[in-house]
């Protein structure tokens, strides 16, 4: 546990990095000045545009990226442990497909007549899809046992397929080139719309998510050996499943509504951390949250500077950067 003191400096360094690097070039000294002014350590006059770019645009974006990365990674960790499926991640439960369908019904089908934003549509869609998947799993007899874990994954696949079909239907009906672009932009994740008010949603949610998960580390350890083993040592299986899966769903849906669908984080980060710190959840949960936060902040920086004058969807970066990195960790882990 000795490395936990590393977490605050690592987070702070990643935040500074994500704030200092962006689409345009701003000297590091200006970045430091802005932070000093904001912390009340300095009263130096700073160009208003530089100040706004650093404080309102990059800083808020970096903080939400950190919250998002931590949320998605934690969701993946929870689902992998509870469902005893290494492939489990938030999107498996139809949350992403539902969010896409929700966003598309707002933008393409004109649901809400321009008054409802795409992110609100995404949030509603994500929750609806998960509710349907949960109901289906319930109806199909998904219980506490190993069979229950299998049933909810199958229900998730069925739900995802249905919502993807709905998305395709709406797009086929009336999409134009520009709309399709707008949707793509969003389906692959995008943090450019983040401003400070979004933090009041993202930060409390990730802290609650982290708190709930840390509270349940013992249960998560037990679930790794199956729901029966968990029940055997006196864990209320049903209640734990509801609380943890509900938490994973909520934090994912919130993040998807803020930043679009960013894949790969929930799958890769927990596995990478398992290789690095072992599979005890007492260490795995904080390590996963920290690594997820740093991973998404750095991915966002890469998405902004990879192509000059253009911003890539962050989902492209998480997959392109994350997949090879994951492969290396996997091979190294095996050799050890």
């Amino acid at each position: 546990m000795g490395w936990f003191w590393l977490a605050p400096p690592v987070l702070a360094a990643a935040l500074l990095f994500a704030t200092a690097v962006g689409e345009t070039r701003i000297p590091l000294s200006t970045v430091v000045d802005v932070l000093a002014v904001k912390l009340g350590l300095s009263a130096r006059a700073i160009d208003a545009i530089d100040f706004s770019v650093i404080w309102h645009y990059r800083m808020s974006r970096a903080v939400v990226a950190a919250c998002g990365g931590a949320s998605l990674a934690l969701s993946g960790l929870i689902l992998q442990a509870l469902l005893r499926n290494p492939l489990a991640e938030p999107y498996l439960l139809g949350i992403s497909a539902g969010a896409s369908a929700g966003a598309v019904s707002v933008t393409v089908a004109g649901f809400g007549a321009g008054l409802v934003s795409m992110s609100a549509g995404a949030f509603a869609g994500g929750l609806t899809a998960f509710a349907l998947v949960a109901l289906l799993a319930q109806a199909a007899g998904g219980g506490a046992g190993a069979r229950g874990a299998g049933v909810i994954i199958l229900a998730g696949i069925a739900g995802s397929q249905m919502f993807n079909a709905l998305t395709a239907l709406i797009i086929a009906q009336s999409a134009s080139a520009e709309q399709a672009r707008g949707i793509m932009f969003w389906l692959l994740g995008n943090l450019s719309g983040i401003r400070w008010p979004d933090i009041w949603l993202a930060l409390p949610m990730v802290l609650v998510g982290l708190g709930v998960t840390l509270w349940h580390v013992r249960s998560l350890d037990a679930f790794t050996f199956g729901a029966e083993s968990a029940a055997a040592i006196g864990i209320d299986v049903r209640r734990t499943q509801v609380v943890l899966i509900g938490t994973a769903t909520l934090i994912t849906a919130i993040m998807v509504s803020l930043a679009g669908a960013i894949g790969f984080v929930g799958l890769v980060v927990p596995h990478a951390m398992r290789i690095l710190v072992g599979s005890r959840h007492g260490r795995l949960v904080p390590a996963t949250a920290l690594a997820g936060a740093v991973f998404l902040m750095i991915s966002d920086v890469v998405s902004r500077i990879a192509l000059p004058g253009q911003v890539l969807p962050i989902g492209v970066v998480t997959a392109l950067v994350g997949a090879p990195a994951f492969a290396i960790i996997m091979i190294r882990g095996r050799q050890r």
Binding site: G22, E23, T24, I26, I49, D50, S52, V53, Y57, R58, F185, S192, R304, G309, Q310, V311
Partner: peptide, 10 residues
């Protein structure tokens, strides 16, 4: 093209 507000504002 889509161009960030940061680039435009700067």
């Amino acid at each position: 093209p889509t161009v960030g507000w940061e680039t435009i504002a700067k």
